[in-house]
């Protein structure tokens, strides 16, 4: 009976693939941070020849106007991070609140909210984002973030609702209620911590989607207006010269890919790391 209480060491070996996530995101974050104090050239400085291939002066080549692409990539990293985290923060705030409310609501409102989530999800996020941009009557970085945040909120809402319902049917919620725990306390102490690991992975996915959607918005001319150099805008501008100067499109695409993959691996790793049930039994 006197089984010893074994608290396994907190630090476990981390899966190398999760380290990769850490490194990939780290590189992008570093590039974004450094861009505040240093870039090889000024953003609008037409320092090189037109469409130079990557070389010692211009590590990522130049665009049609001879502007340095490496500089644009660095500034783009900062924009991608701001867009991704901003959109996810807005989407999470709206989605988690409505999702939890739906799970707690009477049958009628729960069904109504669930249907609303499904309808909004069926709407392409990009379309919702375009409507928001249209409503705000100007394309700016803030509008793009708001639009993407609203666009991804029903996905977060739906996942939150389902996860919350699953937790609500658990014995420990009944146990908490029997001992007089109020609903708000149950949400904060038991529900949010227990849905967080699953939600975190979903939010990482949404982060990637938001960054890519911003690229699409920029591509459509609805994202951050110039002189913001988002990766999406770079892609758009490289479109016409993709055969003669492919690096102009390949490099921002690669940066986008790096960030999206990195965030997903990182989220996966964090979940494993902070899940106490994965610690030795």
């Amino acid at each position: 009976m006197s089984t010893p209480v074994t608290t396994a060491p907190r630090r476990r070996r981390t899966n190398p693939i999760h380290w990769l996530g850490f490194v990939l995101v780290g590189v992008i974050v570093l590039a974004g941070l450094v861009s505040f104090v240093w870039t090889p050239y000024a953003l609008s400085d037409m320092a090189g020849g037109r469409l130079e291939a990557p070389n010692w002066q211009h590590w990522a080549g130049t665009d049609r106007l001879g502007r340095d692409l490496f500089t644009q990539l660095m500034i783009g990293a900062r924009i991608a991070l701001v867009v991704g985290s901003g959109a996810v923060a807005i989407g999470a705030a709206i989605g988690i609140t409505t999702g939890v409310l739906a799970a707690f609501a009477t049958r009628f409102f729960d069904d109504a909210l669930a249907a609303l989530f499904d309808i909004l999800i069926a709407f392409p996020t990009l379309l919702i984002a375009m409507l928001v941009v249209a409503a705000r009557e100007e394309a700016s970085l803030g509008t793009a973030i708001l639009a993407l945040g609203i666009g991804l909120s029903p996905v977060v809402g739906r996942v939150t609702r389902i996860l919350t319902k699953r937790i609500l049917s658990q014995d420990y919620i009944t146990a908490a209620r029997v001992s007089g725990t109020s609903w708000p306390a149950i949400v904060f102490w038991h529900i949010l911590p227990n849905i967080a690991p699953f939600l975190g992975v979903n939010l990482a996915l949404q982060f990637g989607l938001a960054v890519m959607a911003e690229a699409s918005l920029s591509y459509l001319g609805l994202g951050a207006p110039p002189p913001n150099a988002s990766w999406g805008r770079m892609l758009q501008e490289a479109q016409s010269t993709v055969y003669t100067a492919p690096w102009g499109a390949v490099l921002p695409g690669l940066a986008l890919f790096t960030l999206v993959i990195g965030v997903n691996l990182l989220a996966d790793g964090l979940r494993d790391r902070f899940d106490p049930t994965q610690r030795g039994a």
Binding site: D171, T174, N194
Partner: peptide, 13 residues
């Protein structure tokens, strides 16, 4: 109340 199954009656996290 004390329930039957103590594993599920406690918050796993």
């Amino acid at each position: 109340t004390v329930f039957q199954e103590p594993l599920t009656a406690l918050d796993p996290l």
